[in-house]
Amino acid sequence: MIEKIANNYVQFDKPILYQSLKLTGYYDNSLALGEHGDYYFLGFSIDNALQNIRLKLDFLLWTEVKKESMYAYNMKIYFSDDSIETWHDNLNTNIGVRTIPAQGTAEKLLLLEKTNMKTF
């Protein structure tokens, strides 16, 4: 999912340490999909193995999205007819390049992803 790393990534001068996790940079990205809405991504690169990150964040209930390379937590969906505070569990979310949320909805989740370059 993360493709243009050089254009939207900032390497930290000094890593940020959380327990034994080493956050090495920050990224953000957005995709304007016209009538399908906009996507916004933001997060950190982490200089630890995926399994180590999951163990250190074991208080989060991760859902495996892609075998041993992508996990999600707190998958939620908002429907425009609901109040602004109402988010529903979204266990049927589809994560990937060709997925677009239904019109009148917004989705949010925490994604842990291992790429060829880094872990985000």
Rank of each mutant, 00 (worst) to 15 (best):
E3C: 04
E3I: 07
E3K: 10
K4E: 12
K4Q: 12
K4V: 07
I5P: 04
N8V: 10
Y9I: 01
Y9F: 08
Y9P: 02
Q11V: 09
Q11R: 14
F12G: 02
F12R: 07
D13L: 03
D13W: 00
K14N: 12
P15C: 01
I16H: 05
I16F: 00
I16D: 05
L17M: 13
Y18W: 05
Y18M: 06
S20I: 02
S20K: 09
L21D: 06
K22Y: 10
L23S: 06
L23Q: 04
T24H: 01
T24F: 00
G25P: 09
Y26V: 08
Y27N: 06
D28V: 01
D28M: 01
S30I: 00
L31K: 14
L31I: 12
L31A: 08
G34V: 00
E35I: 09
H36L: 11
H36K: 12
H36G: 02
H36D: 14
Y40Q: 10
F41D: 09
L42D: 15
D47M: 04
N52F: 04
I53E: 03
I53Y: 05
I53Q: 06
I53A: 00
R54H: 01
R54T: 08
L55Y: 13
L55S: 14
L55G: 12
L57A: 02
L57T: 11
D58Q: 05
D58K: 08
F59I: 05
L60H: 03
W62G: 05
T63I: 07
T63P: 01
E64C: 01
V65C: 04
K66N: 13
K67Y: 11
E68D: 13
S69T: 14
Y71T: 03
Y71I: 01
A72N: 04
A72I: 04
M75R: 13
K76I: 00
F79D: 14
F79C: 10
F79G: 09
S80W: 12
S80Q: 15
D82T: 08
I84R: 11
T86H: 11
W87Y: 11
H88N: 15
H88M: 08
H88V: 07
D89Y: 10
N90D: 12
N90E: 07
L91I: 13
N92H: 15
N94T: 15
I95K: 07
G96I: 01
G96V: 04
T99D: 11
T99A: 05
T99W: 05
P101D: 02
A102S: 15
Q103K: 15
G104H: 05
K108H: 09
L110G: 08
L111S: 03
L112A: 07
E113V: 05
E113T: 06
K114E: 10
K114G: 01
T115I: 07
N116L: 07
M117V: 14
F120P: 09
F120R: 10
